[in-house]
Nucleic acid binder design. Structure first.
Length: 281
DNA sequence: AAATTCCGCAACCGCGTGGAC
DNA sequence: TGTCCACGCGGTTGCGGAATT
């Protein structure tokens, strides 16, 4: 199910460009901006369904939309297109985002290719709101070795643990019970290889040595930078790691709750592992 | 209870790229 | 060849609901 469908619907119109149709017939030049109304959405949907996508500037004109082609394209690709998935990012998707971003950086569209139904915009927003926020709380840069190690050795193993836990606990009869029918492209990525148990990924369960490495690097970097104005700042490896671990746990716990009824399953984990074991990808 | 800050998300922007002519 | 245009990408904004004071 999909959860909140909030949405403003823009009770009023008139953002920057008020309707001032007074002089002349060149009404072409009052372009709307801001949130889309349901009328605009249906106009766009209807036009695209009869004609295709593409040629967005002329599309906007022919569909009677007082928008730029750019705006129409964005609205379609990120929201109206039938294959877009809404709802919370699943654990598996989080895992993929973390891993792929560690490889490619802010190549959002490339990352989005491996998350069916998710748009680059959504992934980018996820990264900024969830991941970058953590870096700020840890008072380190997202590009710092400290943070990257924390992701590699703490976050990702934690995610894998939780994915395994959730998949084994409800192993039978859980997968995709009456999902919404929007998963057209996701089915194409199914590979049906059950032979590979989700275990051989690096640093999945035996954390201790890796965590030590994290702790040391963490302490190094926190020493080089200013210490946080934290009250009980013993500022040692253990403290730093516990702090991080606690935050990770909080995040994960809050995420697990509503991420179980989603399209990902063990096949996707297999898919993930297969590709990440190789560098070329 | 009102005021204020915080924050997530949809949408916007500039710029780079590539094709048509 | 250079110019124009459509497109896509990554960074950024700002609206409005949630949280906080």
């Amino acid at each position: 199910m999909d959860v909140h469908h909030h949405h403003h619907h823009a009770s009023m119109e008139g953002f920057g460009s008020g309707t001032q149709p007074s002089s002349g017939e060149e009404d072409i030049m009052d372009l709307r901006k801001g949130p889309w109304t349901v009328e605009e959405d249906s106009l766009l949907i209807n036009y695209v369904s009869t004609h295709g996508e593409g040629r967005w500037n002329s599309l906007a004109r022919h569909a009677g939309l007082k928008r730029t082609g750019k705006s129409c394209r964005l609205r379609w690709l990120n929201y109206l297109r039938p294959s877009v998935r809404r709802g919370n990012i699943t654990l598996q998707e989080q895992l993929l985002i973390l891993e792929l971003h560690s490889r490619w950086g802010n190549r959002w569209s490339k990352i989005a290719q491996y998350l069916p139904g998710r748009t680059d915009n959504e992934i980018k927003n996820y990264w900024r709101t969830r991941v970058q926020k953590q870096a700020k709380q840890l008072k380190c840069d997202v590009n710092s070795k400290q943070f990257q190690d924390a992701m590699r050795y703490v976050w990702i193993p934690r995610l894998i643990e939780r994915i395994q836990a959730s998949s084994t606990s409800e192993s039978s009869s859980s997968t995709a019970t009456g999902q919404q029918p929007t998963s057209t492209s996701t089915t194409s990525t199914k590979h049906h290889h059950h032979s590979c148990p989700p275990d051989n990924i690096s640093a999945s369960s035996s954390d201790t040595s890796d965590l030590q490495a994290v702790s040391s690097s963490v302490s190094d970097l926190t020493d080089s930078q200013d210490l946080p104005p934290d009250p009980a700042h013993t500022a040692h490896n253990q403290y730093q790691y516990q702090n991080l671990d606690m935050q990770v746990n909080q995040q994960s716990n809050s995420w697990v709750g509503d991420s179980l009824d989603n399209l990902w399953n063990e096949d996707d984990i297999w898919f993930f592992q297969q590709h990440l074991c190789h560098d070329d990808f």
